[in-house]
Design a protein around this nucleic acid. Structure first.
Lengths: 104, 104
DNA sequence: GGGTTCGGTAAGCGTAGACTAACGGTAAGT
DNA sequence: ACTTACCGTTAGTCTACGCTTACCGAACCC
């Protein structure tokens, strides 16, 4: 559920665009909405979901609310994949590299 | 778009369950469906999406199709987050750790 | 060759959620 | 104090998609 919220948040394309926009630097809601083809309330809702997943954090600055990335959610996400690197993935990785044959 | 397919695939809870099941070891469609509260066709559809995102790969074995994790998609996903570690995140991380004040 | 098991596909339905529009609230500017 | 700008919230609509049922093809067993 912890990880579930994160993947659910990043599952939406628009939300990923907001997230990646914030990866370039902190920005307010209006600034983000201006660079995206969606309305401001939509961005606000997306930020709410991202904040719930601890991927971003808000910071009141006068009448504006500046958003920036939150290391908590990202670290949580990294720890999720840690299982695959350290775990089974390393074992089967050699086999996957040996037989590489695709149908696409 | 490349990463989009991956996040879109992992965005669904059921699909994540399939993915995590496969992280424990290779399995056929029927085996996966038996451990999940969904029908077999549903699992098949999810596997199709996961395969399109290069997160899993199929391997015909008689009349059964054994699925296993694919390092390609996972590696692609890891490279995506590499940006955050090497990039802006490291810079603001110290600031985030200094001012840690939550509203929850 | 008939029967059985295993998977992918098509059609259809139902629900979650993404979006816009409208309203209210708070801080800065004059 | 009034105006302006910025943001969050709610209500409501509409599309996307996850699930099931049903059908069909392919590979093993007798």
């Amino acid at each position: 559920m912890t990880h579930g919220a994160i993947f659910d948040a990043l599952g939406d394309p628009t939300r990923r665009a907001v997230f990646e926009r914030l990866a370039l630097g902190a920005a307010s809601v209006g600034e983000i909405a201006r660079t995206l083809p969606v309305s401001r309330p939509a961005v606000s809702q997306h930020l709410k979901v991202l904040a719930a997943a601890r991927l971003v954090r808000s910071q009141a600055e006068g009448t504006r609310r500046v958003y920036e990335l939150d290391a908590v959610g990202i670290e949580s996400l990294r720890s999720y994949f840690e299982r695959f690197w350290a775990g089974r993935l390393g074992a089967f990785k050699s086999a996957a590299e040996s037989g590489r044959k695709e149908h696409r």
